[in-house]
């Protein structure tokens, strides 16, 4: 146990150790303010994969690692669509996921926003239309590009989305 605490103190808090990225620090501050202003300090996201390659999911998971720790800014991924404000949708929207994704969207109480994540949710990215792909046809409010978007790009995207509320 002692060893662990030694390690813990030596490592410090990596979230705040942002010498390598001042830009991100400013972004995170602005996000926190905006979430406070528009979502009473709590923005709940329901992530749905409609047929991605799983890299977008890996990057979303990375948002919770000690470097980014998104929860700290008031943004959290929730287990139920009924707890969500935002649906984050990745993937090409396969035929087999079509109705399930729609169900999730319908279960989110209004007001709700749909953010698509990654190139293939927008225009299939490098993929091409096949019999098994339907494509996203839900009302999209914002798109975060990238293949996959890195955690930093996702954070930047979320900020852009929040800035949209000012208009």
């Amino acid at each position: 146990m002692l060893r662990f605490w030694q390690k813990r103190i030596k490592t410090g808090i990596v979230t705040e150790n942002l010498e390598f990225d001042k830009e991100l620090q400013n972004i995170q501050k602005e996000i926190k303010d905006k979430v406070k202003k528009y979502f009473a300090g709590s923005l709940a996201i329901r992530m749905v994969d409609s047929g991605s390659c799983n890299a977008c999911e890996a990057e979303c998971n990375a948002l919770s690692n000690p470097y980014y720790d998104l929860e700290r800014l008031g943004i959290h991924f929730v287990a139920s669509p009924r707890h969500a404000d935002v649906m984050l949708l990745s993937g090409v929207m396969t035929l087999n996921m079509y109705h399930h994704a729609k169900d999730v969207y319908n279960q989110i109480p209004s007001p709700k926003w749909l953010i698509t994540l990654g190139d293939c949710a927008k225009d299939l990215g490098v993929f091409e239309k096949t019999y098994a792909i339907k494509g996203v046809d839900l009302p999209v409010d914002f798109h975060i590009p990238g293949c996959p978007p890195s955690p930093k790009e996702i954070i930047k995207g979320l900020l852009e989305f929040l800035r949209g509320f000012e208009k």
């Binding site: 994969d49 047929g51 991605s52 993937g91 090409v92 396969t94 035929l95 087999n96 996921m97 399930h100 993929f127 091409e128 096949t130 019999y131 098994a132 792909i133």
Partner: peptide
């Protein structure tokens, strides 16, 4: 499984 079936083989 096969919810994510994108038809890669046909593609």
């Amino acid at each position: 499984h096969f919810y994510k079936h994108r038809g890669i083989e046909k593609m």
